[in-house]
Simulated scan of single mutants.
Amino acid sequence: MGFLVMFIVALVISAIGFRKFVWFISLGYGFSIAGIGVALLAMFAAQLTPVTAIMAVLLVIYGCRLGGYLLIREHRSASYQATMKNEIKDGSSTPFLVKILVWAACALLYACETSPVLFRLSNNATTDVVAVVGAVIMAVGIVLESVADATKNRFKQQHPKRFCDVGVFRLVRCPNYLGEVLTWTGVFVSGWTAMHGIWQWLAAVAGWACIVWIMFGGARRLEIRQTKNYDDNPEYRAYASHTPILIPFVPLYSVARFKWLVG
């Protein structure tokens, strides 16, 4: 029942994608996660532990920050609008049935991503080390993603024609995507000792695996765009050849050849 509620919350909020197709996966994503966090706080108010309460609140913070950031960027950044116009279909030619399927698939994904928190609450699992570690990883991911977005935003205001290679961008070339991966890895880890049965595990694994795949796809899309824009710059080539694309300290510098990645 709780999973159905989360799915319905995500359906209602992500329905803004019918106004603008990309909002299914941008604004609809962020605000759906925030809405799910609020729903968890309301549904399990009497059963919340400090850790599960923190995780539900972190979902709200994560969703509001991401949704708000994307909303501001979309309205203020002409370069972002131009980039998205070239890279993402506006949905004007997408059949309505396809939009329905995308809407439902997105809502299901958002419910699956957040399901480990639900399962810890609905299964009345006790607070353990795994739950605490998961919450910490989640918090670190949210902080990293926030810092990465703020760093790039400030840098681009001062250097609109240059690639960003300062701060956390010295660690990996896509630290915002790394923050996203850490956030959902933390959520997934938090449910390891709480989930019961094949269906709960399938939902949690599917949510985590899909978002990681999407983030690697986003890194691939960014790499292709940056190569197109900066490949004639020796500084960029040196930066790209020595800074991992997504995972720190792992010598994976390019994913452009992996056409099966979608993000």
Results as ranks from 00 to 15, higher is better:
32 S>I: 10
36 I>D: 02
36 I>Q: 06
37 G>R: 05
38 V>I: 11
39 A>H: 09
40 L>R: 03
42 A>G: 02
43 M>A: 09
43 M>Y: 06
44 F>V: 04
45 A>L: 08
46 A>E: 14
48 L>R: 01
50 P>I: 03
52 T>H: 07
53 A>C: 11
54 I>R: 04
54 I>S: 06
55 M>R: 12
57 V>C: 08
59 L>K: 05
66 L>W: 04
67 G>T: 06
68 G>M: 10
69 Y>R: 11
69 Y>A: 11
72 I>C: 07
73 R>N: 12
73 R>H: 06
73 R>A: 10
75 H>C: 07
77 S>R: 09
79 S>D: 15
80 Y>N: 14
81 Q>P: 11
85 K>L: 10
86 N>R: 15
87 E>S: 06
88 I>F: 09
88 I>K: 12
89 K>P: 05
90 D>V: 01
91 G>H: 04
92 S>D: 09
94 T>G: 05
96 F>T: 13
97 L>D: 11
98 V>L: 02
98 V>N: 00
99 K>I: 00
100 I>R: 06
101 L>P: 00
102 V>K: 03
103 W>E: 02
106 C>Y: 06
107 A>W: 06
108 L>C: 14
108 L>Q: 13
109 L>A: 10
109 L>C: 10
110 Y>A: 11
111 A>R: 12
112 C>V: 15
112 C>R: 15
112 C>K: 15
113 E>I: 15
114 T>N: 10
114 T>D: 10
119 F>I: 14
119 F>P: 12
120 R>D: 02
123 N>Y: 01
127 T>G: 00
127 T>F: 00
127 T>R: 00
128 D>L: 01
128 D>S: 03
129 V>K: 01
130 V>F: 01
139 A>F: 13
142 I>P: 03
142 I>W: 03
143 V>D: 01
143 V>Y: 05
144 L>H: 03
155 F>D: 01
155 F>H: 03
157 Q>G: 14
157 Q>K: 14
160 P>L: 03
163 F>T: 05
163 F>Y: 12
164 C>T: 13
165 D>A: 13
165 D>W: 06
166 V>T: 13
167 G>N: 07
